[in-house]
Design a binder for these strands. Structure first.
Lengths: 228, 228
DNA sequence: CCTGCAAAGATAGTGTTACTATCTTTGCAG
DNA sequence: CTGCAAAGATAGTAACACTATCTTTGCAGG
């Protein structure tokens, strides 16, 4: 069975849909490699053009600028992750087990999904850890939000928030706890590898420890009422 | 009583100490205004030079580049906040009360501290919320960390971690919980004001709600063992 | 087979950014 | 009054972030 997974993206994210052409797919594929390698600040359309054997002007036909491309990549990632969450929690009844699965998906290294040929998810995951927040930490965030550019992120947050409420219908902060899990899954990973004294995982550098920390955080918070 | 508070900064943060001259202080003062107004991406030394009536070359004598200036501002902020934490928790015995004070300091709007004439802390606080993580979310983070540029942040995290252990000596993740509190105090604030559906504070937009969320998060986590 | 049209390639050009260099002026300390 | 450091003035460069325009390619419909 060879099923190619295609994620339908918001049209405001691009000028021309990169999934619809070879050049477009190469832009996605190689931009992921290049951002991973040099970081988003050092990433330019010029360098990308050279890497894919095209021209700057060619890339500008797909994306307004590099920041839009970053938003596209993050939106793609969160859409893909939402799909993974829905897929992996399908047929699971216990909301606690579902939540644990979500935490695992968020905090654990992702293998490349061969159903999406032009995207290497494991590298994209690394990019999202380091560069993901830069998509929205800007002066333009409200305008971009009006164009629904962050919808995949917000959708995922809403799904996790619902699971939290399923576990604990009286918990007061489901959405904030959801966004906390999402961000901390990434920040603790970044800290563990780069600023280890900000974490308790410096010795082993094991993602499983992050999972345990997040599980502890979440389930202590939402179970507390029943505990009192 | 007129005491001017001066924070001793790591010498690697600058080429020439901005606290030691009028021009230096103007660079700090106006860069805070300019970054607040236009965001870090749009901030340039050229614009800053015009605003302070000096030249680009003049600013380059103080800071290698704008990223170093951002690291300086964040380091200054965390040093100042550490001082506030120590000052405000002085003579408090109960570690839980101390922790609550820390959460309040992290998550609540700061009034301008008149003891530091060239820094407007309330605006700096806003900058740290939006731009703070960009100081370390780079490819250079390990080198910068070796130069101890993030020491103030790490020191604050260590202090909070210690308070957590005072509350609950057996808690396993004091440092990760500390960095979670610090980051979430800012992220939840940013989300509340810019991407409200990621939080549970959209209606009131009240920082006191963030404080309550963080207190709930922290004290559920660290009290759990005694609860079982 | 020709026509038309869209995608992509090729090339050029502009204003801005991120610096670096050098020379002059200012102010003050010895 | 001399010397020296800080700051001002000015210039220059390579890279970056675009925009414009013109040509080529490929292939779809008539």
């Amino acid at each position: 069975m060879d099923i190619q997974l295609q994620i339908k993206m918001n049209e405001k994210l691009f000028l021309r849909d990169p999934e619809q052409s070879e050049l477009g797919k190469k832009i996605i594929q190689e931009s992921i490699q290049l951002i991973y390698k040099n970081g988003f600040e050092a990433f330019t359309f010029k360098k990308l053009a050279i890497d894919i054997g095209s021209t700057e002007a060619g890339i500008y036909r797909y994306f307004e600028n590099k920041h839009r491309l970053l938003i596209y990549l993050t939106a793609w990632y969160w859409s893909w992750l939402e799909y993974q969450v829905i897929f992996q929690t399908n047929n699971i009844q216990d909301p606690m087990v579902k939540l644990k699965m979500v935490i695992k998906l968020l905090a654990t290294t992702i293998e490349d999904d061969t159903n999406t040929r032009h995207v290497d998810e494991s590298i994209l995951h690394q990019i999202i850890i380091t560069e993901g927040t830069k998509a929205y930490l800007t002066k333009r965030v409200s305008e971009d939000n009006k164009d629904q550019l962050f919808k995949p992120y917000k959708d995922l947050c809403a799904i996790i928030g619902k699971m939290i409420l399923e576990c604990s219908p009286n918990y007061q902060y489901p959405k904030s706890l959801a966004s906390t899990i999402i961000e901390m899954a990434h920040f603790q990973n970044f800290f563990m590898n780069n600023l280890p004294s900000l974490t308790d995982f410096a010795d082993n550098k094991d993602e499983a420890d992050i999972v345990r920390f997040l599980e502890d955080l979440v389930f202590s918070s939402i179970k507390r009422p029943s505990c009192l």
